[in-house]
Design a binder for these strands. Structure first.
Lengths: 165, 165
DNA sequence: TACAATTCCCACCATGACGGTCGGAATTTC
DNA sequence: GAAATTCCGACCGTCATGGTGGGAATTGTA
């Protein structure tokens, strides 16, 4: 039950694009710099987002990507779906599920449970938009310096490696 | 955002054990027969469930496994946790998370979102118990023959392979 | 026209989790 | 002693994931 890093990256790229909304396209090089994500990986990601209709691209020198819709109308679920495929706890609840693939259907005691779970997840992820994330983030940024002074853990002697910041 | 088959299997084994509640231990051979799951794999799974304190075992000829608690007090979340580890959309929300592993903490725009998601998932999975699943299943069983006669899809010419029934 | 900055596309790769198998030891009952 | 069990550890193939690299095509700019 984890959200892939790819989805995270996608979200971060989207918020970055949302931030530059209206000011012409943003190049992946800029996104890469801002979010410390590898350019070549962003390329793949951006391609998916484009095919998913969430962003559009301009090639050439001052090219880059921009959102196709208002950030407040793009839900996190939209992004995750495009990047990870449909978000569902079990395959038999996906729309593209071929009936008959699971022999237990009709006899499955837990399907109703997964249905509830899927609905619940969908609800949460569709309520928050990219616009919300950007707004929250600038808020966090504002208060970050204050918060930073109070806390002083960071004792962890042996931090687990985590992908790209 | 998928639930592993391992968790499924775990759930199925648990419901099977719940069904035989009170009638002495149930051997993995029986579970294997009833649920069409490979015995050797069940052994591993059962070991995890035992270490997680959800079942207890008796060795020897009439040995097997039994639940340690009333099925109605064992939530699906309990089982999934034991089998898959803590269920959380991102590592930074797990209890065993070492602060400092993620450099973005305190600056992360999406953490509140993941928090909401985690709470939501936890809620759904902790509401349903193994006992509920058993009850639902016997209900389904009762009506299954009727339902089976009406539907007649099964046209799917090229069904995707799905693990162990 | 040359060049630089881009997107675009495809192939490759290393790692790890997952689902699963196998062989054998220990335990218990008959 | 033999059969039925749990128990344990090693191994294995496959697949998704995260990531790199090379080279096209496109476009603005000097």
């Amino acid at each position: 039950m984890r959200v892939s890093s790819k989805a995270h990256y996608g979200l971060r790229m989207m918020t970055e694009l949302a931030r530059g909304c209206g000011k012409g396209p943003i190049s992946l090089a800029e996104v890469s710099r801002a979010e410390h994500l590898p350019l070549s990986y962003l390329e793949q990601l951006a391609a998916q987002l484009r095919r998913g209709g969430l962003v559009e691209s301009t090639r050439g020198v001052h090219g880059g990507y921009r959102l196709t819709r208002d950030p407040l109308t793009i839900s996190v679920l939209d992004v995750v779906r495009v990047v990870e495929g449909e978000v569902t706890p079990v395959e038999c609840l996906a729309q593209d599920y071929t009936p008959g693939s699971c022999i237990r259907e009709g006899d499955c005691a837990s399907q109703p449970l997964w249905q509830r779970l899927k609905r619940s997840i969908d609800a949460v992820l569709s309520q928050t938009t990219i616009g919300d994330l950007v707004a929250d983030h600038s808020l966090v940024q504002t208060f970050a310096p204050l918060a930073a002074e109070t806390g002083q853990r960071q004792a962890s002697p042996r931090r687990r490696e985590v992908a790209h910041v």
